[in-house]
Amino acid sequence: MLRILFSPRVLALHLLAIGALVACGLLGRWQLGVFEDSGRPHATRDPAPVAVGDLTRPGRHMTSEAAGRRVTAEGTFDPSRQVLVAERDGGLWLLASLDLGDGTSIPIVRGWVSRADDPAVAVPAGKVTVTGRLQPSEATDSVRRRARQLPQGQVLTVSSAELINVWRGAKLRDGFVVATTQSPPPAVAAKPVNAPPPTEAGGLTWRNLAYAAQWWIFGLFAVFMWWHFVRDILRGRAAEREQEHKPGPEPAAA
């Protein structure tokens, strides 16, 4: 039997079945991966930057469509209105108020520093143009704030409701901008803060899951056909041997 199973003809059948099984398994796994990826959030179209005033209004909540959009803001930083946002990746965010020149201001995350006495903390003077991503105002964590005794000039969240009380007299637009570039650049630049582009929820593509199941079914069918052909070969060989050993008819008596 082993000689039959490893004969050139049957060996080629073995290799063909293994190849078909591996190919169907990999193709099914690929389609399953496409199905899984379709359910994950993915980046949306990233439009060109627009003026921050086009997407925000004082006293109005920023829309969800504006979150993550690239914006530009032109104005001057107020040195008296800068705070440090604590507990940000082991360091601090530099959060300053940018006066837009129309009576309103927008909070700007200028960058990240590891300590409060970093030279980059100094607020740039003069008119600047900031490009960055607009983010919604964070919720105020009053419980954690009461549990922490923060140094003067530090906050835990970038919250418009909290900043109105910290920067008294400022007419703030909702949300804040995470700066990616500033023109002219500051004398000492802080480390940029990562601001991901806007994303949208994915929708599962069930068709790809069906394709994965089909490929795996094809693989099982290949195994069945291999077993079927090998069985027929063994049965045929067994029948041949039985025929060979079958005694012939006895000669007729004279």
Rank of each mutant, 00 (worst) to 15 (best):
M1L: 04
F6M: 14
L15C: 15
L16G: 05
A17Y: 12
A20N: 12
A20P: 05
L21Y: 03
G28I: 12
W30T: 00
W30C: 02
Q31V: 00
F35I: 05
R40C: 03
P41Y: 01
T44C: 00
P47S: 08
V52Y: 07
P58K: 07
H61R: 04
T63A: 09
A66M: 04
G68V: 05
R69Q: 15
R69W: 01
R70Q: 12
T72A: 01
A73S: 09
T76F: 07
D78T: 11
D78V: 07
P79Q: 15
L84I: 06
V85C: 13
A86K: 03
D89E: 09
G90D: 02
W93F: 03
A96G: 01
L98V: 07
D99V: 10
D99G: 08
L100H: 04
L100V: 12
T104K: 10
I106W: 14
P107E: 02
I108D: 06
W112Y: 02
P119V: 01
P119D: 01
A122H: 00
P124R: 06
G126P: 01
T129R: 14
R133N: 08
Q135L: 08
Q135K: 13
P136G: 08
A139P: 14
D141E: 09
S142K: 14
R145C: 05
R145A: 03
R145Q: 05
R146P: 09
R148Y: 15
R148M: 15
P151S: 10
Q154A: 05
T157M: 09
V158W: 11
V158N: 05
E162A: 07
L163R: 01
N165T: 03
W167S: 04
G169S: 02
K171M: 06
K171N: 13
D174R: 11
T181Q: 10
T181E: 14
Q182F: 07
A187R: 05
V193E: 02
N194G: 10
N194Q: 09
A195L: 11
T199Q: 14
G202Y: 01
G203R: 12
L204T: 08
R207Q: 11
Y211T: 02
A212N: 03
Q214K: 00
G219A: 15
M225G: 07
W227N: 12
H228Y: 05
F229G: 01
V230F: 11
V230G: 02
D232W: 03
D232M: 08
I233W: 10
L234I: 10
R235P: 07
A238H: 11
Q243C: 06
E244T: 05
K246F: 15
K246C: 14
K246H: 14
P247F: 15
P249W: 03
E250I: 11
E250A: 15
P251H: 07
P251E: 11
A252D: 11
A253P: 14
